[in-house]
């Protein structure tokens, strides 16, 4: 059932309480827990199919607290795609993408890392509120940080979660292919 090739790995980053763990849990088909406990470090694996092929996606879910920076470092080095999450109804979490998360990821992964910007809890979006972040703003930020994509998601809608991880797989495959062709080009000479 599952593609024998290397599983696609991704890391969820973003401020505390934007719902990173919830996305991961929802993707692997578990109900997001209601017990309100901060994550230290979790690792999940789920399957998804892209273009008719089954892929395993392994998800690292490190703590979003800035306090746990030292632990996140190791997850950065061995994942292929980074999912940067913010809560659409919490502008601070949106601001920290540019002011905290991007610099941190750039520092440990270099500038050429594949990043997907994910807007979470879109069901809570209130267009009248000041703190709410619009789709346009999200897309603009995604362009600015040169992200591989911008996705909106809510755990209320399983399909929106699934598309996020399908995007992860396509991004990772694109990245792998790039490396492969470069290698071929060199070795052919």
């Amino acid at each position: 059932m599952v593609n024998a090739s290397k599983p696609v790995s991704c890391t969820l980053v973003g401020d505390g309480m934007v719902g990173k763990t919830s996305i991961a849990l929802s993707f692997i088909g578990k109900q997001a827990e209601e017990n309100y406990v901060a994550t230290v470090f979790e690792n999940y694996a789920g399957g998804t199919s892209v273009a008719g092929e089954q892929y395993t996606v392994s998800i690292y879910d490190p703590a979003g607290k800035h306090d746990y920076a030292s632990m996140r470092v190791c997850t950065y080095t061995d994942c292929e795609v980074i999912l940067m999450c913010y809560n659409v109804s919490d502008r601070d979490s949106f601001d920290s993408i540019a002011s905290f998360w991007l610099p941190e990821v750039r520092k440990f992964r270099g500038t050429k890392s594949t990043v997907i910007l994910v807007a979470t809890q879109t069901d809570t979006r209130n267009p009248d509120s000041d703190s709410s972040v619009s789709t346009e703003e999200g897309e603009k930020l995604a362009r600015e940080i040169n992200a591989g994509g911008y996705m909106e998601t809510t755990t209320q809608n399983y399909d929106s979660v699934k598309t996020v991880f399908e995007k992860v797989v396509t991004c990772a495959l694109k990245c792998r292919k790039k490396k492969k062709t470069l290698f071929k080009k060199i070795s052919r000479r």
Binding site: V37, D67, S70
Partner: peptide, 23 residues
């Protein structure tokens, strides 16, 4: 439990890299 998760790494850390279990 929740508080300890957010406060733990601020009260104590090793000189080098912390391991997951130690955390």
């Amino acid at each position: 439990m929740n508080l300890s998760i957010v406060f733990g790494p601020n009260l104590l850390w090793p000189k080098g890299q912390a391991s997951l279990s130690a955390m």
